[in-house]
Amino acid sequence: ITIQNFVNNCCDRIPNSIHKFETLVRTCLGLPMGELEMLFSHLLGLSHSLEELIDGVLAYKKNKLKNQGIEFISEPDVPQAGGLDLLENILERAAVLLKPEAKQHNLSFPKGMILWGPPGTGKSLSAKLAAKKMGVPMVAADWAGLRGTTAYESRKNLREFLQFCDANGEHGLVLYFDDFDKGFAGFDSDNDGGVSRQLAGKLLTWMQERTSQVLVMATVNRLEFLPPELVRRFDEIIFVDLPHAGARYEIFKLHLAKYFPGLDFSEKDWWRLLRETKLLTPAEIALMVRKTAENAFYWNTQELSSDELGEKPLSVTVRDFLEVR
């Protein structure tokens, strides 16, 4: 309540919505009031919206964790994942469970979500955006990096890492495993002296017994590679398939805005582009748009001076995209 009142007094001049205000309050949890006062005195001079304030507080919390030797994955290059409306709705429902009032109804933050699907369908991007949407930091877990030279060192690394997550997950934390299925390739094997099985068992026990608000988000290409006892620890298993036409349109619009601001096509050209990209993944669509932009810039370098290159927008047609396709 103290933090909520403090944030409300600081942000009374900034346009906001109830949803964004609650996200900002949730992002501030876990920081001492003295640090918050200094942080807001700095950020309020630079921010013009609640979104910018949320990003600033999250960046500060990440820098604090980086000082403890924790690695973070890169920021997403687009503001949202196109075509994943159902997943975004699930994440919004999970975010409200971080409210202190949820405990009064015996509700708790979900323990884990598996994002399952072919490579390049936006699973990793969704995980990155999930932490931002919830207003909590995200720690990337490297399963191979936790393995030490001995079984004792491996267990020690995992134990200390999970203790760190518990200590920093009191007010929400996303623990991210990329290609989670690959990390359990030796689960049923004793080729490494049973180390993989011991580490997996430790992780399973922690996911079952922990009380901190840590959401384990794991991306998986082959769900059948995971042992059943591991799958049962997750609250949600979400299949992320190849995008349909409407989703491809949203994905194109996201990436076109990055390289070609203001560019749009006729309805006929849109249908042609969507029809010719039917089997592309979101990652392939992003690459297709980027390569088209690179080609357009190359042709500009052949015709324009250096002074004009930065000023003239990139000019393309649907045919240019289909040639790259």
Rank of each mutant, 00 (worst) to 15 (best):
K312M: 07
Q163V: 02
D77E: 08
K128Y: 07
N89I: 09
T149A: 13
G172R: 05
R275T: 08
C165N: 04
N16D: 04
Y298K: 10
F265G: 03
G34P: 01
L29T: 03
E35H: 08
G186A: 14
F297A: 09
G172H: 01
K156T: 08
P119Q: 11
G83D: 00
I114P: 02
T2R: 08
G45H: 15
M288F: 05
T205E: 03
T150L: 13
L242E: 00
A151T: 12
G246A: 09
R159P: 01
D77G: 04
T121G: 10
L107P: 02
L203W: 03
V240W: 00
L242H: 09
A144N: 13
L146D: 01
A130M: 10
V216W: 05
L254A: 08
Q302H: 02
F321R: 05
R272Q: 12
D241I: 13
M288G: 02
A127Q: 02
M207R: 07
A286T: 12
L173W: 09
F321E: 00
T219R: 11
Q208V: 04
A245K: 14
F265S: 07
L314H: 00
V7I: 15
E92D: 11
T292G: 03
A185F: 07
S189R: 12
E294G: 07
K64Y: 00
A131T: 11
L50H: 08
L46W: 13
A151S: 12
L86P: 01
L87R: 10
G246L: 10
N106M: 06
K61R: 14
R197P: 01
D12R: 14
I285T: 06
N89D: 09
Q68S: 08
R155P: 00
L204A: 06
Y152A: 13
E308W: 06
L322T: 03
P243L: 11
N221C: 07
N168R: 11
R290A: 11
L87M: 14
Q104I: 04
F321W: 07
C11P: 00
R26Y: 02
I285W: 01
G56T: 09
Q213R: 13
F187Q: 08
N9K: 15
L279V: 03
R26I: 05
T205Y: 04
I285G: 00
T149M: 13
P227F: 10
T281C: 02
E308K: 12
F164H: 08
S126T: 15
G246V: 07
R290M: 12
F321Q: 00
